[in-house]
Amino acid sequence: MPNEHKPTKKMADNAQKGIDLRDKFNRGGTDVGVKRARQIIDGGPMSDEDVKSMHSYFARHDVDKDAKSHDWGDEENPSAGYIAWLLWGGEEGKTWADRQREKIGD
C-alpha cells in the first residue's frame, strides 16, 4: 500500500498566503502550483508521487530566491517566484518534502 503524507498547518498557511498574493498581484505560480496549494490547504493526504513532485519543484526553483526584480519575501511587491514558492508550501513545504522524500527512498 502506498504511503500517505499529511502536510502541516504552516504549509497550509503558506499556501493560502500564496493564493492571496497571487490574487492580489495577478502573478506567480501556474495552474499546477494553484492545484498543489489547494491540495495542501485541504490537508492532503498526499501520495508518494506528490511528495516526489514537490521535492523536484523545490530543487528546481531554489534559484528563484536570487531574482533581482523583487525582494524575496516582500509582501508589498512580491516576486512571482516567491508567490509560486508559497503555493508549494514555502520553506516549511521544502523542509517537509525533503524529509518525506527521504522516507520514500527510490
Rank of each mutant, 00 (worst) to 15 (best):
T95D: 10
A37L: 10
D74Y: 07
Q100V: 12
Y82S: 04
S56E: 08
L86I: 10
D50R: 00
E49G: 03
D23S: 13
V51A: 03
K103S: 10
W96C: 04
N14T: 08
A84Y: 01
N77L: 09
L21Y: 09
S53F: 13
E75T: 02
E76N: 08
E49R: 02
L21V: 03
K6L: 15
G29E: 11
D20F: 01
R38P: 00
I104Q: 05
N3T: 12
D62K: 15
D48Q: 04
K9Y: 13
D64Y: 09
D13M: 11
D31E: 13
A97K: 10
H55C: 08
I40R: 00
S53G: 13
H5Q: 09
K94R: 15
R36A: 07
H5P: 03
H61F: 14
V63G: 09
G93S: 02
Q100H: 07
I104S: 02
K6N: 08
Q39S: 15
G93K: 11
P2L: 07
W85C: 11
M46K: 14
A84I: 06
D66F: 09
G28I: 02
S79E: 10
R99V: 10
E92K: 07
D106C: 12
G89A: 06
W72A: 02
M11R: 04
H61L: 03
S69V: 06
T30V: 05
F25S: 06
K103E: 06
D66Q: 10
G90D: 09
